[in-house]
């Protein structure tokens, strides 16, 4: 083991850098889903579609900016605009028109409403953006690459991957933690997450909190998509693949736990990139193996609280 480590320490270092960037993207998608689940108790299957729509919107805005000859840094504005637009438009629309009507119904009905929404949005994306890969990489080019020494060699990494993605993920984590613990609205959200009945009894307007949380979660999904858009080509079906991974993160993390989501995303990111180097065959199953292993030891998830059992 020790000799293996010393022989491969350089590669492990590279795997660490790659894993961090990947973990950042996974975290951005999963944290919104986790937050929404914590408050609404709905597993939002359409979260992946919001991710995809955020990515497509960011690319469209970015391409529009580029066609108007705006400077490259405006690409970053496009990312934020896309997230805000999806959060502010689609979020309330979905919550008001659909989810609100099925609160308190059986879990399976709530799940299926979002599954139906997912099916509809899959086709909507196709109608709006077509099927050819869409991509814009202004944010990536704007920052260029950084050479990381590797023995006698250097490996170019994009600054976007090295700094922007982990940076934004970390900032999101800190801001969310601060928001949930230090602001009134945040504490109310936590209160609803922990015990909705008690919170409502104390006069909290749960309906408003749910609307707010869902829109916020939608915005986070879209931001995740927007952040992924400069490095990837957008094609139909990306939403379906993103959502399964986020599910694994949410269950592993513990319900509504943002720190749990961060830690899980980190484990998945690092586990995956190490697998790509040393055991590529296992790459795809890494998230699920982590999930099963964690839940074996901690059935309520990494940071989950054991819920009181109803009598």
């Amino acid at each position: 083991m020790a000799t293996w480590l010393s022989e491969n320490s350089l590669l492990l270092g590279l795997a660490l850098l790659d894993g961090l960037a990947y973990a950042a993207l996974v975290f951005m998608v999963a944290v919104g889903l986790n937050l929404v689940f914590g408050v609404l108790r709905i597993v939002n299957v359409a979260h992946g579609s919001l991710f995809a729509i955020g990515a497509y919107t960011a690319a469209s805005i970015g391409l529009f900016f580029a066609s108007r000859g705006l400077p490259a840094w405006m690409g970053y504005v496009a990312l934020v605009l896309a997230a805000v637009a999806v959060g502010a438009v689609l979020g309330p629309l979905i919550e008001r028109l659909l989810l609100r009507r099925i609160y308190g119904h059986e879990d399976v009905l709530q799940l299926l409403v979002t599954f139906a929404l997912f099916m509809i949005l899959e086709d909507v994306q196709k109608l709006v953006w077509g099927v050819q890969p869409v991509s814009q990489d202004a944010p990536l080019r704007f920052l260029g690459t950084v050479d990381i020494p590797f023995g006698d060699d250097v490996i170019p990494f994009t600054a976007y991957q090295l700094f922007v993605l982990p940076g934004i993920a970390l900032a999101t984590l800190i801001a969310l933690a601060w928001f949930l613990r230090r602001t009134l609205t945040g504490r109310v959200i936590v209160a609803v997450t922990t015990d909705k009945e008690a919170a409502t009894a104390m006069g909290i307007d749960a309906a408003r909190i749910m609307l707010l949380t869902f829109s916020f979660g939608a915005g986070l999904a879209a931001l995740g998509g927007a952040l992924a858009s400069p490095t990837t080509a957008l094609v139909p079906g990306i939403g379906a693949q993103t959502i399964v991974l986020s599910f694994a993160v949410v269950a592993t993390a513990g319900l509504g736990q943002i720190e749990g989501a961060a830690l899980t995303a980190l484990m998945i990111g690092l586990g995956r990139s190490i697998a790509v180097y040393f055991a590529p065959e296992f790459e795809v199953v890494v998230p699920y193996l982590i999930m099963v292993a964690v839940l074996l030891v901690r059935p309520q998830g990494l940071f989950g609280v054991i819920e009181t059992r109803r009598v």
């Binding site: 299926l112 409403v113 599954f115 139906a116 099916m119 086709d123 909507v124």
Partner: peptide, 15 residues
Amino acid sequence: AWQMILGAVLLVVIL
């Protein structure tokens, strides 16, 4: 758009 139709049917049934 068969997927959209199925999704819509599902929504109508649930609601």
